[in-house]
Structure formats: C-alpha cells, structure tokens
C-alpha cells in the first residue's frame, strides 16, 4: 500500500506513460494510423479526397470489408479461413450459371449463401470434429472448391450476371456505392451479433479460453462451427457483390482476399491467438489496406509499391500487438 502511494505522489509521469503506451496503441493505434495516412496522402495529392476517388475507394472497400467481418469471427475462435477467396470465386461462377435474368436473383442469392455456408460447415467440422488445423482444413477446402469450379466451367466461365447484382456492385446512390450500403448493413447486423448478443459472448469466451468455455456450459464446438459458417456465407455474399463490380467473371474473382482479409483483421487488432478484437477494428484494418493501395497511386509512386507497403504494414502492425512475454 505504501509503495503504491509513493508511486502516485512521485512526479514521474513518464513511467506510467510508457507503461500505458502499448495498451493505447493496441486500442486506438489503428484509427490514428488510418487518419494519419489519409491526412498525409491528402497533403501530397489533394485529388485523393476528391468525390470520385473516395467513391472509388469505398466501392473497393465493400467486398473486402464483408469478408473481413466473417474472417473476424473465425480468427476470434482461434482459427483462420483460407478458403474465402475460393468461395468468392465460386459464388461469382454460380451467379453466371443462370440465365442472367433478374428474376433469378433470389435463387442465385440463396444458392451462393448456401454454398458458402456449406463450405464453412465443412471447414468447421474438420476443425472441431477431426481436430485438423484450421490452416490445413481451409486450405484443402480452398483447393477442392477451386477444382470443382474449374471442372464445372471447363476453365472458362462464361455467362451473364443479372443486372441487379451488377448495379449493386458498381452503381452509386449520389456518390454512395450501393455495395458499401450492403457492407454497412452487414457490419451493423454482425456487429450486434458479435458485440451485443449471447452468441457473440460465447464466441469471445470460446476463443479466449476453450476449456473455460466448456466448463461454463458453452457448446464450444458448435460455436466454432457457426463462426466458420458465418465466414463462408459472408464470403459468398462478398463474391456476389465483387462479381457485380468486376462485371466479367473469371475463375479467380477474389484472388488475394484470403490473405488480405487476415491481414486486415490482424492489423485491426484481432488476435490470431483468439478471443480479442472487434469488427470496428477489423474494418479499420480493411480501410487502411484500401487507403494505402490507393494512396500509393495517388502520390505518384509505382503501383508495385502497393504490395510492398502492405507487407511492411502488416509486420509492423502485428509486432505492435504482440503481448510482452509473460511470467
């Protein structure tokens, strides 16, 4: 007691500052970094914040954001999902497999979500019931889906996407992309699910400590499987929207999204060790990826630097989140 008092009385705010800094960085660093990146880029190239460019960035953000939300659920329960990009491409192929009529839109939507959910279910079952590492389970599902897709399309997908989806993916409502509206709705719904619902609480407890979860009566396996199902379903939705944005379908719609979504989540403070992180943080991570990619071009640097910057940012961000070695 006396020691604590002495510390308080001593006029040495430095110690407490350095002690608190990591926590502060962990909680808000991502948002500060995001704002800083925007400000610096704007200073160099004012066109960065032009209506057209902002609208363009937001349109790119939407599909990534939706995938990141799903990925967040999976990472929270100590997993990761490498199959999201494959699910996205498969959704895009499904979208063109019908006549391209708007009347089929509902059917397409359900087929896509069903495919994504089924993939997630398979991932979740492999991880929980067979105890396969998430990395391998989702890697294998990624490859299987890719093969099935290639086989079904003979390597050259063709056909049309209903105009409804094309509009959803690429049109704007006075500058506000429709697809971003979809992302916002998804973020709110799943944000409530994760941060306000009983299920979300079970997700955090399961991810934070699977043994505790079981001992307080939570069906940890079921919670984990559901997280993979959510991730697969959202990836399918994102694939649908992205195919509408791209317009043409190929077998690689969504390529790179598996790694980008993990990177965004980790940068946003979602811990790979589970049980820690938020959807807001993960979306901020996704926004940074989009902003940095765009900024590289806007300030006139070669486009190849996008990926270099991405690599640097992930290593730096991840090392900031590493918790100091414990006793």
């Amino acid at each position: 007691m006396t020691m604590a008092k002495a510390n308080q009385a001593a006029p040495v705010p430095r110690a407490s500052l350095t002690a608190r800094a990591p926590d502060f960085v962990r909680s808000y660093g991502i948002f500060i970094f995001l704002i800083a990146a925007i400000v610096v880029t704007f200073a160099i190239s004012p066109a960065f914040l032009s209506g057209a460019n902002v609208s363009n960035m937001l349109m790119q953000l939407a599909p990534l954001g939706i995938v990141v939300i799903g990925q967040t659920f999976v990472v929270l329960v100590r997993g990761l999902d490498l199959s999201v990009a494959s699910v996205m491409a498969t959704a895009a192929v499904i979208a063109t497999s019908f006549g391209g009529q708007n009347s089929d839109a509902a059917l397409i939507f359900l087929a896509c979500i069903g495919m994504g959910a089924a993939t997630g279910l398979a991932n979740g079952l492999l991880v929980t019931k067979r105890n396969v590492s998430p990395f391998l389970a989702t890697l294998a599902m990624m490859i299987v889906l890719q093969g099935l897709r290639f086989a079904a399309t003979q390597g050259a997908p063709s056909g049309n996407i209903p105009s409804l989806f094309r509009q959803l993916g690429s049109a704007t409502l006075s500058g506000m992309p429709y697809n971003l509206l979809v992302m916002i709705v998804v973020a709110i719904l799943f944000g409530i699910l994760l941060h306000r619902s009983a299920f979300g609480r079970r997700v955090y407890i399961t991810g934070g400590n699977p043994v505790t979860a079981r001992l307080v009566g939570i069906a940890a396996d079921r919670v984990t499987i559901l997280c993979y199902v959510i991730c697969g379903s959202l990836a399918a939705l994102a694939g649908l929207i992205l195919s509408g944005f791209v317009g043409v379908v190929d077998n690689f719609v969504g390529r790179g999204f598996e790694l980008d979504s993990i990177v965004a989540a980790v940068m946003g403070g979602v811990a790979l060790s589970g049980g820690r992180g938020s959807i807001a943080g993960a979306l901020a991570g996704a926004t940074i990826l989009v902003v940095l990619s765009n900024a590289v071009v806007m300030v006139g640097m070669p486009v190849q630097l996008q990926i270099i910057v991405k690599g640097l940012v992930i290593i730096i961000a991840a090392s900031l989140y590493v918790r100091p070695a414990r006793a």
């Binding site: 407890i205 934070g208 400590n209 505790t212 049980g275």
Partner: peptide, 9 residues
Amino acid sequence: KGQGLAMQL
C-alpha cells in the same frame, strides 16, 4: 487462468 476465467473479458 487456464480453466476458470475468460481473461480478455
């Protein structure tokens, strides 16, 4: 810590 608490919460 291992079986009782959810330390993050």
